[in-house]
């Protein structure tokens, strides 16, 4: 019962933050709403016993991605949106989002919860073992991907160069 209350709290934080991200007119506020939403997701990870992912979520999203977004907002001074923050197709976007949510939610509720579900979470040690044995090759590929993205970002954003 307590877990359900905590779930609704974290879910409200997540969805409220998400609505703030897509609804606010201030871009810096949007980045801070994104932080709130991501921390709500971290709380949900804790509730389903994925504590390693909750930690990764706080460190990478809260500590890295939101900070990088705020830096980018400082470097691109955005006073250019005088009129609406939304483009002309926003009513279509509302309809598309609501219809998609209706379809997915109907499918989920019709399917229901299969019988005999057990909440179980692996420890951090299990995840580490799996990541470095069974998933070692994807792990190395991910590290190469991060290196390529790092070098690519430096080359693209470098001052000067050939425009």
């Amino acid at each position: 019962m307590t877990s359900l209350v905590l779930f609704y709290l974290a879910g409200t934080l997540t969805l409220g933050g998400a609505v703030g991200v897509v609804g606010t007119r201030n871009i810096v506020h949007a980045a801070l709403f994104l932080l709130a939403s991501l921390m709500g997701v971290a709380g949900i990870y804790l509730l389903v016993f994925a504590e390693f992912l909750a930690l990764v979520q706080v460190l990478i999203y809260g500590g890295a991605i939101v900070i990088v977004v705020l830096f980018a907002l400082m470097l691109t001074r955005l006073q250019e949106f005088r009129g609406s923050m939304e483009n002309r197709q926003w009513p279509v976007a509302v309809v598309a989002a609501v219809v998609l949510f209706g379809v997915i939610a109907a499918a989920i509720v019709r399917t229901g919860t299969p019988a005999g579900l057990e909440r179980q979470g692996p420890g951090v040690q299990d995840i580490g073992t799996a990541l470095f044995t069974q998933w070692a090759i994807p792990f190395e590929v991910a590290s190469v991907l991060l290196l390529v993205a790092l070098i690519g970002a430096i080359v693209i954003a470098r001052a000067g160069g050939r425009d």
């Binding site: 998400a18 991200v21 949106f81 609406s84 483009n87 279509v92 598309a96 998609l100 949510f101």
Partner: peptide, 22 residues
């Protein structure tokens, strides 16, 4: 259901916003 709601809010943001950062 929470995941579907979050995804659809994000979908609205992608379709309707004008700023690339948003």
């Amino acid at each position: 259901v929470l995941s579907a709601g979050l995804f659809c809010i994000g979908l609205y943001g992608v379709l309707a916003r004008r700023s690339a950062v948003l």
